[in-house]
Amino acid sequence: MSRRRRGLSREERTLWAAVARTVEPLRVEDAVVEPPPEPEPEPAPPPVVAPVKKLRGKGADTAPPRPVPPPQPPAHPPLHPIERRTLTRVARGTVGIDARIDLHGLTQLDAHDRLRGFLFSAQAQGARLVLVITGKGKAGGDPHYGEFAERGVLRRRVPQWLAEPGLRSIVIGFEEAHQTHGGGGALYVRIRRRRGHGVDEP
C-alpha cells in the first residue's frame, strides 16, 4: 500500500525557500522557484449584539419598575361655612329659606332618619338653603327613656349628623340660625345643587 504524501506546511515552505536562495543552481531550469505565499485568512466578523433598550430617567438602569398604586376612592368634599353676607341677607329676608323641618320632640333615631330623608328630598327639589329646627332644650332627661328622651340632645347631635361623610354629597355647610329663625335652637343648612347623576361644588 502506497503511503500518502504529506504536503509541506507553511513554515516548512518558508524555511526551504530561504535555504534555496543561498544555493547557486547548476542549471537555470533546476532553479527552485519560491511558491507564492498562501493568502491570509480573512478575520471573522464581530458578533452582532442586539441593542439593549434603556429606560429614560435618572436611575432607570438600576431601579426596578414601581408598582402602580390602586385607584383611590374620591375624597368627601369638605364643609364650608356659610358666608356672613348670606347669613345677613337670610336674617333680613332678602334670601328666602326653601324648606324647613322641625325635629324637636323626636327621639334620636327618628330625628336622624327624618333629617336624612328631608335633606335628600330638598336636594332633589333644587333647594339651596333649608332650616333645621332642633329646639334648645335643657340638660338632663327622663330616666325611664334614658338618652333617647334627653332634652337638648338634638341640638348637640344634629350638627354631628350634618358633618357625617354620608351627607357630604348634600350638605355644603351649616350655621346657627338668626334669632328671627330660632337662634341656638335651629340651623341654616346650605344644599349642594345636583346636576344629572353628579353633584356640583359650592
Rank of each mutant, 00 (worst) to 15 (best):
D98R: 05
G146A: 10
T94E: 05
R89P: 01
H112E: 08
T107W: 00
D98L: 13
I97S: 10
G126F: 09
G141N: 07
A99D: 03
Q108T: 10
R128I: 03
R92S: 12
G137S: 10
D110Y: 11
G117W: 13
H104D: 11
F120L: 11
V132E: 04
P143Q: 05
Q125D: 15
T134M: 12
D113H: 01
L109G: 05
K138Q: 03
Y145H: 15
A111R: 07
G141T: 03
R92E: 07
R114P: 11
A122E: 01
T107P: 09
Y145R: 15
Q125C: 12
G141H: 04
T134F: 11
G140P: 02
T107S: 13
G93K: 09
G140M: 02
R128G: 14
G93S: 09
H104E: 09
A139M: 11
L109K: 12
G126N: 03
L119H: 07
H112S: 05
F118S: 04
G135C: 04
I133F: 00
E147M: 12
R89A: 15
V132S: 04
G141I: 08
L106H: 06
H112L: 04
T107M: 01
G126L: 05
A111T: 04
R100N: 14
H144W: 10
G105H: 00
G141W: 04
D110R: 13
Q125F: 08
I101K: 09
G140W: 10
H144D: 13
G126C: 12
F118Q: 00
H104F: 02
D142T: 14
R89K: 15
P143G: 09
R116E: 05
R89W: 08
A91N: 10
D113V: 14
I101N: 01
D110V: 02
D113W: 03
Y145N: 14
K138M: 11
A127C: 15
Y145K: 14
T94M: 12
Q108D: 02
R128V: 04
T134I: 05
E147A: 08
G141Y: 00
L131D: 01
G105T: 12
G126S: 04
R92W: 07
T107L: 03
R100E: 15
Y145E: 14
H144Q: 15
V130L: 09
G137K: 08
H104C: 01
A111Q: 01
G137R: 08
Y145P: 00
V130I: 06
I101G: 06
I101S: 05
Q125Y: 00
